[in-house]
């Protein structure tokens, strides 16, 4: 097989904007749960399949990303996708003793 590039489908929740990964039958915020498509045709078909979630206003902006399969778990190949998959900035958010509080959930 020539030029096999393993891929995943990623998107963002419409309401919260979090990055999500297509598992084959649903969405997960956990990168490792994403379905890996080794063949281009399968990846394209998955991207086509998830368009219904766009139409139903569940997700926005689905696209394909390249992944590496060298280790135990799949990994994103680009710095951008590694940061997205971590769901946070790469540095500790530190305001000293003036800590950032997690949002108060009360109304």
């Amino acid at each position: 097989m020539a030029n096999v590039v393993p891929q995943m489908v990623t998107a963002q929740w419409l309401l919260g904007g979090e990055s999500i990964y297509w598992t084959g039958d649903g969405w997960s915020e956990n990168f490792a749960a994403g379905a890996v498509y080794v063949e281009k045709e399968a990846a394209d078909a998955a991207l086509e399949q998830v368009q219904s979630f766009v139409r139903d206003r569940v997700v926005v902006g689905p696209y394909l990303i390249e992944v590496e399969l060298d280790g135990a778990l799949p990994q994103p190949t680009s710095a951008r996708e590694r940061i997205r998959a971590a769901h946070n900035a790469t540095f500790a958010i530190d305001h000293g003793s003036w800590t950032s509080r997690v949002a108060d959930q009360g109304s």
Binding site: G17, S19, H87
Partner: peptide, 9 residues
């Protein structure tokens, strides 16, 4: 002023 960024709006 509302963007959709890497992790969130």
């Amino acid at each position: 002023g509302l963007y959709l960024q890497l992790h969130a709006y």
